[in-house]
């Protein structure tokens, strides 16, 4: 899934609006986006844009379990 951390706020807002209007094809975000007001979407966008950019912060399920056991998931790299 695309990471939102560090994404420019306008990209998040425009994507959410496009999902809401149905102009961007979606799998799940069509319905999720319709649950939020424009103001709420902006609030989320400003939050995510301020998070440190992370790319590929993804793991296999087994890795996730192993990392969880080691207490290392979610820690800053």
């Amino acid at each position: 899934m695309p990471s939102l951390a560090g994404m420019p706020a306008e990209q998040i807002i425009e994507s959410m609006m496009a999902f809401k209007k149905g102009t961007r094809p979606a799998i799940i975000m069509d319905r999720v986006s319709r649950g939020y007001t424009d103001d709420e979407i902006k609030t989320m966008a400003y939050f995510f844009t301020k998070q440190p950019l992370k790319q590929w912060d993804d793991t296999t399920l087994a890795e996730s379990v192993a990392a969880q056991a080691a207490g290392s998931i979610g820690a800053p790299k």
């Binding site: 939102l4 951390a5 709420e40 609030t43 939050f47 440190p52 979610g74 820690a75 800053p76």
Partner: peptide, 19 residues
Amino acid sequence: VTRRDLIKLFGASAVAASG
């Protein structure tokens, strides 16, 4: 925008636990 706002807004989903 604080995490509290976010918790309030999302209730759920991928609000990752950033440091």
